[in-house]
Design a protein around this nucleic acid. Structure first.
Length: 958
DNA sequence: ACCGCCGGGTGCC
DNA sequence: ACCGCCGGGTGCC
């Protein structure tokens, strides 16, 4: 850049230098991403193509960005440009500025873009040999209602939109006249698909993902559980993905350039490798074990993790912050109860005996760099630390031990000392709290070497990045990750350079606006993995987060994802679908329980049978139910009449809860349950702020104490840290706080648009065990449902006392009520619910899984307690006491025992009260399941609201 | 830019 | 000479 020009255009040059200068690529992505964080980034699914326009890009000679024929460009408004506040900048896929839109056209475009009337997308369809300007093909996308405004604005500046032909194409060809300039080979023309075809295509997305992924790999010696064949395949594939030198999907090498087939973008530098991917195996196929095996086996180029091992210990060493009793002390009890090396050294020996003891001789004379002859030996010989790790057990000559110890100590002085190189060592695993203990269990169970697993959790967690980097594995939760992220001053997880980051249940991260998403995207790592049985939860949009996390350029920027993948696919473009499949295929391994390898089932599970048992209420129960239903209906009817269903949503939910409770047991309603007072009052007769607050606390307690699986209207997930607004709507605390923060003083409730602010939010006081319960013990009445359950349990005990059962309810209070008859009949039982500490959970699970005589035969389980990873295979009977809103939650619950390791056939009994709200719920469940099958996502806020209202009608039979 | 536009030089053909 | 025409300088926003 000549200095005269720099002076001349000083202001703007400088600013661009700031934005683009520091990094060679990706900076614009950040700018774009920042822009997209603003609320204007609505569902583009409703967008239609208004038309196209030929424009020109000027000022090419001032910028370095290049564009090839057919390449897509992005258009970015530059409201602060000193020469023209209408300026529209043009940038290529990698974010380098190419030029500006000519000012005459920039004027109407600025208006359109600033008022969010349309999204304008550019493609440089052909190039002239003009070095100063180039033509750009602009397509205008937006909501139908804005069409007129756009057409008017353009025509007032003398521009006219040409009708867009064959819309949809991400690599938009726009006007038919331009078709001939399109040279990149695209064989198929866009043929819209029917929803049915689309759905099938989505299923197919994961088909054929097995091919050439059947090679097996043995796990490192430190893994002492024998992997099943399909797990060895997954391990081989994962290691391959981590050591891969391949170009990411859609990149091809052409001469000395790297060319992106989809965006036509070419760069000299090789695009960053995408190390990692999505392990999308079905639940129960052992994603956790496979990942543990990966961590231990593939530290560097297929070599195992070098383990320190000075002492004679050979077990997973779990550490967490010292003593602190705030809720959860994951893992610490392992250390307390089983001092290092004591418990499992026998396990280790067993393992070593069974595998190869040649280890030592090999490791001594193999020297450096000898090609591996057999599994294990080479890994050991090439890494003295690892040999030393085993040495503790195998009695390596003491000189070698000492040497290894010394080395380890030295390494500890360096940040993230690895024992072999200066590169990062630690793997960060982020998981939902519910499966955290499962990870610890699995490390404990499957690893027999000295692996440092540090639990980063609890208020006294060690916020020291240097310390964290030195661990082998750091386990934390999404919650901690996002909480830390809000503290700008101390974000240890963000500071560490991880060898590997694993997102367990990765689909929980799907809303790009959520804090946890930002935190996840900010993590630094060489390799990235997403574990999820259901990578696409609701819609294709969900996948973007994951792709973005994996940094699959250029799709980690929302614009390119939308243009090239999401919109073409949702518009039914077959090419778009093919592209999506190629993309997913390249980075995903998915097998289901019914997948077959070489004609054989991947995993043979015992049978599962589901029975529905209809319960008839007693005369008394029926009468009570009828009365409550009549009163509730009257109130809901009134809301419908007044059109205030949404504003009184919490009240309605509370009434529904009461009806459901009554189906289970009258005592669930509590003291107020028997009279009209039990119905929720309106806020009208509440005057003081204190009263209002108290009132809201009662409401939120009523709505949530039941375990009703309400979703947060912002993140669409199950509620996390639920809070209630003054207008009585429930959200995740972080979600609604984020809304309030971004909207400042004018924050409105997303559901009813009432004014809200942070100080007025009412927190959910949590599950309180009803105290009168214990006093009522003796006069505890039974109920039809309780009786039905007891008949089953007693029968089972006579039939075969070793059979274990899960008794599941959403109402923890109901579980407490059930304890009474269980005790009366001398059942030994355990209990697992959300209010329990991590420690007592683990104890409950262990006790239940124990097969010894006299071990508990029943587990009282709250539906949402314990996450997906929970392993309750000791049970072969499941009693679902009450239907859930979300049928998937029930299935998940059943799968906790119907999974790998289950020895017997599983029988599930669902109790449904005849002629009650429960039957209506089942109907809705069924309908929803069909909907999920048919329409793929595509539900916007309004549709969701409508469907909720419809649900209420159906439930109340209105 | 093999353009458009601006402004200075110039002035029959 | 308050025009036309010529040719050099110049050029995104």
């Amino acid at each position: 850049m000549p200095s005269s020009r720099r002076r001349r255009f000083g202001d703007s040059e400088l600013r661009f230098a700031d934005v683009f200068g520091t990094e060679s690529s990706g900076s614009l992505s950040q700018v774009l991403r920042r822009a997209e964080e603003e609320p204007v980034d609505e569902d583009q699914e409703e967008y239609v193509l208004f038309g196209t326009l030929q424009g020109s890009v000027v000022g090419l000679r001032y910028y370095t960005g290049v564009v090839n024929k057919g390449e897509m460009v992005s258009l970015v408004r530059e409201p602060h440009n000193p020469y023209d506040r209408n300026a529209v900048m043009v940038a290529n896929v990698y974010g380098s500025q190419v030029g500006h839109i000519r000012r005459q056209l920039a004027a109407p475009m600025a208006y359109i873009m600033d008022n969010n009337l349309a999204k304008v997308e550019g493609v440089v369809v052909y190039r002239t040999n003009n070095q100063f300007t180039m033509p750009v093909h602009l397509s205008f996308w937006g909501k139908e209602e804005n069409r007129l405004a756009i057409v008017n604005e353009l025509s007032s500046h003398g521009f006219k939109l040409a009708l867009g032909s064959k819309g949809g194409q991400g690599t938009s060809r726009g006007g038919a006249t331009l078709e001939r300039f399109w040279t990149v080979s695209r064989r198929t023309t866009a043929v819209p698909l029917t929803p049915e075809q689309l759905k099938n295509a989505f299923d197919k997305l994961f088909d054929d993902l097995m091919e050439d992924k059947t090679r097996e790999m043995e796990a490192a010696e430190a893994v002492c559980t024998a992997l099943l064949p399909h797990q060895k395949q997954a391990l081989a594939w994962m290691a391959l993905r981590e050591n891969s030198d391949e170009l990411p999907p859609f990149w091809e090498q052409q001469n000395n350039l790297y060319f992106n087939v989809l965006t036509s973008f070419a760069v000299k530098e090789r695009p960053d490798k995408v190390l990692g991917g999505i392990l999308a195996d079905d639940m129960g196929l052992g994603k956790t074990l496979t990942t543990i095996a990966l961590i231990l086996t593939n530290f560097h180029n297929g070599k195992p993790l070098p383990l320190q091992g000075c002492a004679g210990s050979a077990k997973t060493k779990v550490s967490s912050e010292p003593a602190k009793t705030d809720g959860l002390r994951s893992g610490s009890h392992f250390a307390e109860e089983k001092p290092q090396g004591a418990a499992s050294s026998s396990q280790c020996k067993r393992h070593l005996d069974a595998s190869n003891v040649i280890v030592i001789s090999d490791s001594e004379d193999a020297g450096e760099g000898v090609a591996p002859k057999k599994k294990g030996s080479a890994m050991l010989s090439e890494d003295s630390d690892f040999a030393a790790a085993l040495g503790g057990v195998l009695q390596v000559p003491s000189s070698q031990k000492k040497k290894a110890c010394k080395k380890r100590e030295d390494c500890d002085e360096m940040q993230g000392g690895t024992g072999t190189s200066a590169g990062p060592r630690a793997t960060l695993i982020v998981c939902p709290l519910s499966v955290l203990s499962n990870w610890l269990d699995q490390f404990e169970q499957h690893v027999c070497a000295d692996v440092n697993v540090h639990v980063y959790y609890g208020s006294n967690r060690i916020r020291n990045p240097r310390f964290l980097a030195k661990q082998d594995v750091v386990l934390t939760t999404y919650n901690i990750l996002s909480t830390d992220y809000t503290d700008k001053r101390c974000r240890p997880l963000q500071e560490v350079s991880w060898l590997r980051v694993v997102l367990d249940e990765g689909h929980v991260v799907r809303n790009p606006a959520a804090l946890q998403s930002k935190a996840v995207l900010g993590l630094r790592a060489e390799r990235r993995w997403v574990l999820s049985g259901t990578p696409i939860q609701n819609s294709l949009k969900d996948l973007w987060m994951l792709i973005s996390f994996l940094r699959l350029k250029p799709f980690d920027t929302r614009e390119w994802w939308n243009r090239v993948i999401q919109r073409p696919v949702t518009l039914g473009d077959e090419t778009g679908l093919q592209n999506l499949q190629t993309l997913v295929k390249g980075i995903t391994l998915r097998r289901t329980k019914s997948s077959r390898v070489g004609g054989r089932l991947l995993v043979e599970l015992p049978q599962k049978q589901v029975f529905v048992e209809h319960i008839t209420l007693t005369k008394d129960e029926r009468q009570q139910y009828k009365k409550l239903k009549k009163d509730s209906r009257a109130i809901v009817k009134r809301y419908f009449r007044e059109g205030t269903v949404m504003t009184n949503y919490a009240d309605i939910l509370a009434m529904l809860v009461r009806l459901r409770q009554l189906c289970c047991h009258p005592q669930l309603l509590g003291s107020s349950g028997t009279s009209d007072a039990g119905l929720v009052g309106t806020t009208e007769n509440v005057s003081t702020p204190d009263e209002l607050r108290q009132h809201l606390v009662e409401k939120i307690t009523l709505v949530l104490s039941s375990g009703s699986d309400e979703e947060c209207p912002v993140c669409l997930e199950s509620l996390r840290q639920p809070v209630m607004t003054h207008c009585a709507h429930v959200y995740c605390k972080p979600c609604i706080c984020e809304v309030i923060r971004s909207e400042k003083e004018n924050a409105k409730c997303p559901l009813c648009r009432a004014q809200i602010n942070i100080s007025e939010l009412v927190e959910y006081p949590g599950e309180q065990e009803n105290l009168d319960m214990s006093q009522d013990k003796d006069k505890c009445l039974s109920s039809s449902k309780v009786d039905a359950l007891m008949i089953h349990l007693l029968q089972l005990r006579t039939q075969d006392p070793s059979i274990k059962s899960l008794v599941v309810s959403q109402f923890t209070k109901f579980l407490s009520l059930l304890e009474v008859p269980l005790r009366e009949h001398g059942f030994n039982f355990t209990r697992l619910d959300g209010s329990m500490s991590q420690k007592s959970r683990v104890e409950a699970i262990q006790a239940f899984q124990d097969s010894a005589q006299g071990s508990p035969s029943v587990m009282l389980l709250s539906l949402k307690a314990g996450g997906v990873g929970l392993n309750l295979t000791a049970a072969s009977r499941v009693f679902l006491m009450d239907p859930a809103w979300n049928p998937a939650a029930e299935d998940q619950c059943i799968d906790r025992c119907h999974r790998l390791g289950q020895q017997s056939d599983v029988m599930v009994t669902k109790f449904i009260v005849k002629d009650s709200i429960e039957e209506n719920m089942v109907k809705i469940q069924r309908k929803k399941q069909e909907l999920v099958k048919k329409a793929f996502g595509a539900k916007n806020a309004e549709e969701r609201k409508q469907s909720r209202i419809q649900d209420i009608r159906a439930l109340m039979e209105l």
